[in-house]
Structure formats: C-alpha cells, structure tokens
Simulated assay, not measured.
Amino acid sequence: MDLARTQTLTRGGATRNELKRAARRLFAERGIAAVGMREIVEAAGQRNAAAVHYYFGSKDDLLRELLIDGAQLIDEGRRVMLDAAEAAGEPGLHAIVRAAVLPNIDLAGETGENETYFRFIVGVQNERRQWFRETVRGDASIGYARYMAHIHRLLGHLPTPIVNQRILFAGLSLQTLLAAREAALDASDTGDHHFWSRPEALEGLIDTVEAILRGPLR
C-alpha cells in the first residue's frame, strides 16, 4: 500500500472516530430524537454535511455502531473476569456481581466511551427500548448470558419470574448509577470527583447490585 493511500485511510479512520465521539456526546446530553445529522457533523468539526451518511449510512446505523462498540468492550471484560472466577471453583454471588460491574468502569475505547456511553444507552433505552434489546446480541452479550446463567443457578431457590425481575431491577439500577457517575466525572476538569472517585463508591455499586439480587423473598 502506497503512502498516499495509507494517509487517506488514516484520515478517514480519524474522521469516523471524531464523528462517533461527537454523536455519542450529543445523544447522551440531548437524547436520540433531538439530534440531527448536520449537528453531529458540525460538532465533530467536519465541513462535509454528508459525512455521517458517507461513513455510517443512516442514523440507526450510527446508533447501532455506537451501541455495539461499548457493549463489546464491556462484555469482553466481563468474560475475562468470569473466566477467572470460574477457574477458582464454583463462584458465589459476590464474585459474579463483581464480574458484571467492574468491566463497566473506565471503558478503554478509542472514541471516548468512558465519557458518555452510559448516558447514551440510558437515552437509547428510554426512547428505543425494543430496538436496544434487538441490537445487543451475539458476541456483544455472551458474557452477559453467562452472568444470567450464574444468577439463576445461585438464586435457584426463588421462582424464575422473581429472579428475572431482580436481574432487570439490578441492571436498570446499575445503569442509572453508572450514568450519574459518568456525568459527575465528565463535568470535572481533572476527571476526579470527591465522591465517585473514591474506592468506597465502586464497592458500593457492587454491594447495591448484590443486595437487589440477594434480598429476601417477602
């Protein structure tokens, strides 16, 4: 590959990343329906009004890529932690919850996932919940399916509808807390926060999810 083509591909990749980062932030801060394609182009500092269409196709195609990017990052980390927990024997609830929660912290993506991803997915779920459920499948949810299987194993003494309800409540609570944490850290000039940067806050996230799952049946 000649140098000119390599430079063109590099610039194209950088432009895609800039568009994705700008789009996710706009969606996170203003919602999905309120953001137009032209606004994304302007926020990314691009001059070509058709840049989003050129790189991604439709708005739904862009949303799908943003959603899958973060979901894959989280699920890859979840699988690694579940592998480690399972290698040590049959894991208990605390180990499984840690494997579910910790991969959500400080996402190491190339387009600023750690800055806006959880506010973005809260918005997607609020506005397009069925689409969200249909989109995050396959390789982006293998670790989550393993997590679900462990929870059903560990809470097998409870009726299945109750277990599924608790998994839903725990997941929604975690997303809301992660979105609040993300917003606080994003608003900080230093990336630090007097509450959310403390180790106790992270342990509190884990304890909260575990408490929702473990609570006594009334």
Rank of each mutant, 00 (worst) to 15 (best):
L63K: 03
M148K: 11
R166E: 04
R137H: 11
L3K: 09
A28G: 02
I121C: 01
A50K: 08
R30M: 12
E203P: 08
G89V: 12
F120E: 00
Q175I: 11
W196N: 00
A49C: 08
R64Q: 14
E90F: 11
V122Y: 00
I162Y: 02
T111M: 10
R16I: 15
D75Q: 10
D69P: 10
M81A: 12
L155K: 10
N104I: 14
L178P: 03
N114F: 09
L9H: 03
R214K: 13
Q7G: 00
N104Y: 10
Y144F: 14
F195A: 01
R181G: 05
A184T: 00
E90M: 04
L158C: 01
A44D: 03
E86S: 11
L3T: 10
F118A: 04
L177W: 13
Y117D: 00
N126Q: 15
H152S: 05
F169L: 14
G57L: 04
A183I: 12
A170W: 07
P161D: 04
R38L: 14
T160A: 14
E110C: 11
H53F: 06
A99Y: 07
L174A: 06
T10Y: 00
Y147K: 09
T116M: 04
G109N: 13
A34H: 07
E134A: 15
P199M: 12
D2E: 08
H152I: 13
V124T: 05
Q46R: 15
Y55G: 01
F56D: 02
S173F: 12
A180G: 09
A44C: 10
L178N: 04
V122K: 09
Y144P: 11
A28P: 05
A87V: 10
Y147S: 04
L102T: 05
M81E: 05
A84L: 15
A87L: 14
A14H: 08
E42T: 15
G138Q: 13
G36T: 15
L154C: 04
W196Q: 00
A50S: 11
G215T: 14
A71K: 06
V209M: 10
G215N: 04
I212Y: 02
N17P: 08
D186F: 12
R129Y: 04
V124L: 15
L107E: 01
R137Y: 05
R21Q: 14
P216L: 15
I142N: 08
Q175D: 07
Q175H: 07
H194N: 01
E39N: 10
M81S: 06
A170C: 09
N17M: 15
Y117W: 04
L9E: 05
N48S: 09
A44S: 09
D189S: 15
A88G: 11
L217E: 08
E29G: 01
F169H: 02
R218C: 12
L174F: 07
E182Q: 11
Q175S: 07
A88V: 13
D69H: 10
G171V: 08
